[in-house]
């Protein structure tokens, strides 16, 4: 072992607990990214605990001054004003995020082959997907606030009349709230929506910034000179985590 030719080879041959060896066989940066994501998962979990407890103590019933049915609120689609289209827009957002996750993982794969042009191309696709998602979320927030969502109150409770009105319209029919359809509901409804989707949106925004930085580094040949594209993998881990959080936001805020 005294005269090793390559540092890396000697590094890998060390016994696990002697020091000088990565027990998980990942790089320092990637391990730290995983640790960060774990702590971030805890952060999102605290928000989910808060949301779940509030929600379960205000059980959803169709006719309610309790937790509002998401289908009665998130039923808008851009350029289709006044139509009842629950879940459609948010499914499109989910599709955009899944697609950008795939282009990200394709960039990672191209990085393994050290193909600079392909990495750059897939990074551009990923950035476009992220910006598209953020735009969708901005529209969603705008519509929600326009409908009367406030941090300190909730006017999305549904009366008997409102329930009959809502159940009489089908998917894609024209729908506008009438007087007396809505009443007050549990106060933290909109606040929790804004906090959780806002926190997730902020993560998407940071992800886009990270991806732009990594893209510029790729184009300028930083990774080419470095000899490996591991930075793409680290950025990718973060980006997939954002997608992962969205899976649960989608499930708990829109589906259930």
């Amino acid at each position: 072992m005294a005269n090793h030719t390559s540092t890396q080879a000697s590094f890998e041959n060390q016994p696990t607990w002697a020091g000088g060896r990565s027990p998980f066989n990942v790089s320092y940066g990637k391990l730290m990214m995983w640790i960060f994501l774990l702590s971030d998962a805890f952060t999102f979990s605290t928000l989910l605990v808060q949301y779940g407890t509030q929600r379960f103590s205000n059980v959803v019933t169709p006719i309610t001054t309790k937790w509002p049915d998401p289908a009665s609120i998130f039923n808008h689609f851009p350029f289709m004003h006044g139509l009842h289209l629950p879940l459609l827009f948010v499914s499109v957002m989910t599709f955009i995020l899944i697609l950008s996750s795939v282009t990200m993982v394709l960039a990672v794969e191209a990085g393994h082959r050290k193909s600079k042009a392909e990495v750059a191309r897939y990074m551009v696709y990923t950035i476009i997907g992220g910006i598209a998602f953020l735009s969708c979320q901005a529209w969603e927030w705008y519509t929600f606030i326009h409908e009367g969502a406030r941090l300190d109150g909730n006017t999305f409770g549904i009366t008997k009349q409102g329930y009959d009105h809502l159940t009489s319209v089908g998917f894609g029919d024209h729908f506008e709230w009438a007087d007396g359809d809505r009443t007050f509901g549990p106060v933290p409804f909109a606040a929790l929506f804004f906090i959780v989707t806002g926190f997730h949106g902020f993560h998407v925004f940071s992800g886009v910034v990270i991806n732009v930085v990594v893209y510029i580094m790729t184009v300028r040949g930083v990774f080419e000179r470095r000899g490996h594209y591991e930075m793409i993998e680290k950025a990718g881990l973060y980006w997939h985590f954002v997608d992962l959080v969205w899976v649960f936001v989608f499930t708990f805020f829109y589906l259930i």
Partner: peptide, 18 residues
């Protein structure tokens, strides 16, 4: 110096296709 380099250690990776 240079023998033990945990900070800059990068395991060898290969593409497994798409």
């Amino acid at each position: 110096p240079g023998d033990y380099d945990a900070i800059n250690y990068i395991p060898h990776t290969e593409s497994h296709g798409t």
